[in-house]
C-alpha cells in the first residue's frame, strides 16, 4: 500500500505545477461583477520597479473610484504573458482593455482581434508599433520623447554647452529607451561642444548600470567623462556606486542626470550624489479613465495624450522629496 502512495506523488506534483503555471500565464483576478458595471481589462508589464507599482496603483484606484470592475493581468516582464492575457480578455468580452505593453512590436494580430470584437483598447505608458492607427482607440503616457529633451536642455544649461557625456541606455528596443536616446541626441547634436562619447545598455537595472559604468571609467578614464545621462534612476544609482568605488565623488567629479524620479533617486539627490532627475509621471490613471469614459460614450478623442513631467534639481531635492507620492 505504501509504494502505491509514493507512486501517486509525482502525479500530484505535476498537477500542482500545472496549476501554478496556468495561474502565472493568465494571471487575471476574477471578481464577480454586476451586469451593469462595466468590466475593464488592465494588462500591466509587471512589478519591476517602484515606478511601475505607483503606475499600477494609479489605474486600480481610479477604476475603483469610478466604480468599474477592473480585471488585472500582470505580464511579469514577459511579452507572451501579455499577449495571452490580451486574448483571454477578448474572449471574455470585456468592455474595454487598457494595455501597458512591454515591447512595441508584435501587437498587430492581438489588436485586430480586439477591433473585430468591438473592444476599444487604450494603450498606456509605452507605445505600440502598428501599421494601422485605428487598431487602438487612444494612447496615454508620459512623454518619454520630451523627457530626453528636458534632460538634454538641463545638460546644456548645467555644462555651458561643453561636456563629454556617457549614456546608459535602457533595454534596447523598448520605447522609452528609443525615445530617450533619440530626443536627447537631437538636442545634444545642436551643440558642438557636447559629445556623447559612449552609449551602452544597462537594461534599466542597477547591477548592470554599475557594471557598464565600471567599464566606461576604465575605457575613457574618469578625467574624460564629465557627465552621465541614464535612461532611468536605477542605472544612475548603480553608476554612482561605480564612481564612488573608483575613489571619485559622484555629482561633483562626474555629474549625473537620470529619468523617472523615484524615491531612491530623490534620496541620492538629498545626499548630494545625483544632480538632476526628470520626472516620468506614473499617475496616469485619471487621464486614462477620463478618455476611456468618452470613448465608451461614443465620443472621439485625440490619439495621443500626455501627462505632464517636471524636472527636479539637487538644490531643491530636500523640499521636493516631501511632496512625492511614490
Amino acid at each position: 500500500m505504501f509504494p502505491d502512495v509514493l507512486k501517486k506523488i509525482p502525479l500530484t506534483f505535476l498537477i500542482i505545477t500545472g496549476l501554478f503555471l496556468s495561474g502565472c500565464g493568465g494571471g487575471s483576478d476574477d471578481s464577480s461583477a454586476d451586469s451593469d458595471t462595466l468590466t475593464i481589462g488592465f494588462i500591466q508589464t509587471g512589478a519591476e520597479s517602484d515606478w511601475r507599482k505607483a503606475h499600477t496603483v494609479s489605474v486600480k484606484e481610479e477604476a475603483e473610484k469610478r466604480g468599474y470592475n477592473l480585471k488585472f493581468a500582470d505580464g511579469q516582464g514577459k511579452p507572451e504573458n501579455q499577449i495571452k492575457a490580451f486574448s483571454s480578455f477578448v474572449v471574455q468580452r470585456v468592455d474595454a482593455i487598457i494595455l501597458a505593453p512591454i515591447v512595441e512590436t508584435g501587437w498587430e494580430t492581438a489588436l485586430r482581434k480586439a477591433k473585430a470584437a468591438g473592444i476599444p483598447v487604450l494603450i498606456l505608458d509605452r507605445t505600440v508599433d502598428v501599421s494601422d492607427d485605428s487598431l487602438f482607440a487612444t494612447y496615454v503616457g508620459a512623454d518619454t520623447y520630451q523627457e530626453g529633451i528636458q534632460a538634454a536642455e538641463w545638460v546644456v544649461k548645467e555644462t555651458g554647452g561643453k561636456a563629454n557625456i556617457v549614456e546608459l541606455q535602457g533595454t534596447p528596443g523598448s520605447s522609452p529607451a528609443i525615445n530617450r536616446l533619440k530626443s536627447f541626441k537631437s538636442v545634444i547634436d545642436q551643440h558642438p561642444g557636447l559629445k556623447i562619447i559612449d552609449s551602452q545598455s544597462g537594461d534599466f537595472r542597477r547591477a548592470n548600470g554599475k557594471q557598464v559604468m565600471e567599464a566606461m571609467l576604465k575605457k575613457h578614464g574618469p578625467e574624460n567623462i564629465d557627465l552621465v545621462y541614464a535612461h532611468n534612476d536605477d542605472m544612475a544609482l548603480g553608476a554612482i556606486q561605480a564612481i564612488e568605488e573608483a575613489g571619485l565623488k559622484p555629482a561633483v567629479y562626474i555629474k549625473l542626470i537620470s529619468i523617472d524620479a523615484v524615491r531612491a533617486a530623490f534620496e541620492a539627490m538629498v545626499d548630494g550624489k545625483l544632480n538632476c532627475v526628470v520626472e516620468c509621471n506614473p499617475l496616469q490613471g485619471p487621464l486614462a479613465f477620463d478618455l476611456l469614459e468618452k470613448i465608451l460614450a461614443g465620443e472621439t478623442v485625440a490619439k495621443d495624450n500626455r501627462v505632464k513631467d517636471e524636472v527636479f534639481e539637487m538644490a531643491h531635492a530636500a523640499e521636493d522629496i516631501k511632496t512625492r507620492a511614490y
Binding site: 519591476e48 537595472r205 542597477r206 547591477a207 554599475k210 544609482l237 548603480g238 556606486q241 531612491a264
Partner: peptide, 16 residues
C-alpha cells in the same frame, strides 16, 4: 554577493 554589491535588494530583478 549581488545584494551587497549594489547595496539594494530588488526582488523583481535580482538574479534574473
Amino acid at each position: 554577493v549581488e545584494t551587497s554589491n549594489i547595496a539594494n535588494s530588488d526582488p523583481s530583478q535580482l538574479g534574473i
